[in-house]
């Protein structure tokens, strides 16, 4: 059990896909304008990660080495299509605001990266925990970034006004703000790791 817990922990903290590995940044920045969007994207990506990890790890012995990447892509694309259709049917508003970034999960480096680096080499159960961990880590990072952007850029958290007299800085919900937030956050994470290692 401890072993599985380790896989979970790894994805959330030690190898957080966004801050530590800098994978899957494109959707992270594009959809993090509000917490709802960020969370929705995170859940969608987690589902795809979980699904592709399970399938990849269970068929890993049957796939010829040479064409494994195309096979992974097909598996991932299948799950992305499922997410796309489900979201369109049950969460039309979310689907609209995430736009082309739902199909773009297919080229999200986190998903393919985990399939190649982990699921194709480990058992099903371990891969489930790995996918779950990475998914949660990704979702947390997304929620963090979108919370910052929503708070500064719109003056709200989950749609609720925080301080009445605060005048939101529009820039944070626009493109420059996203790049700024991620830059500063990476800087902070670097700073904290530096201190952890030197102390």
């Amino acid at each position: 059990m401890k072993k599985f817990f380790h896989e979970l922990n790894k994805g959330i903290f030690i190898e957080n896909p966004t801050f530590r590995l800098a994978l899957g940044l494109c959707p992270t920045l594009a959809v993090s304008t509000s917490i709802v969007n960020g969370f929705g994207m995170g859940i969608a990506a987690t589902f795809v990660l979980l699904g592709s990890n399970v399938i990849v790890s269970s068929v890993r012995d049957f796939i010829p080495k040479k064409i494994r990447i195309p096979c992974f892509i097909v598996i991932i694309a299948t799950f992305v299509t499922i997410v796309e259709l489900v979201m369109k049917a049950y969460f039309p508003a979310l689907s609209k605001s995430l736009g082309i970034f739902v199909p773009l999960i297919v080229v999200n480096c986190v998903v393919l990266g985990r399939a190649e680096a982990f699921a194709s080499r480990h058992g099903v159960v371990k891969s489930i925990f790995d996918g779950l961990g990475m998914g949660i880590g990704f979702t947390l990072a997304l929620v963090l970034i979108s919370a910052i952007r929503e708070a500064f850029g719109n003056g709200t958290i989950l749609g609720l006004v925080i301080v009445r007299s605060f005048e939101p800085a529009l820039i944070f919900i626009l493109a420059p703000g996203a790049l700024l937030v991620i830059g500063v956050l990476i800087g902070i994470v670097n700073y904290m790791t530096d201190r952890c290692y030197t102390a």
Binding site: E167, A169, L170, I171, F172, L174, P176
Partner: peptide, 8 residues
Amino acid sequence: VFLQISWP
């Protein structure tokens, strides 16, 4: 420019 974009 930061100000211009933030508080037009």
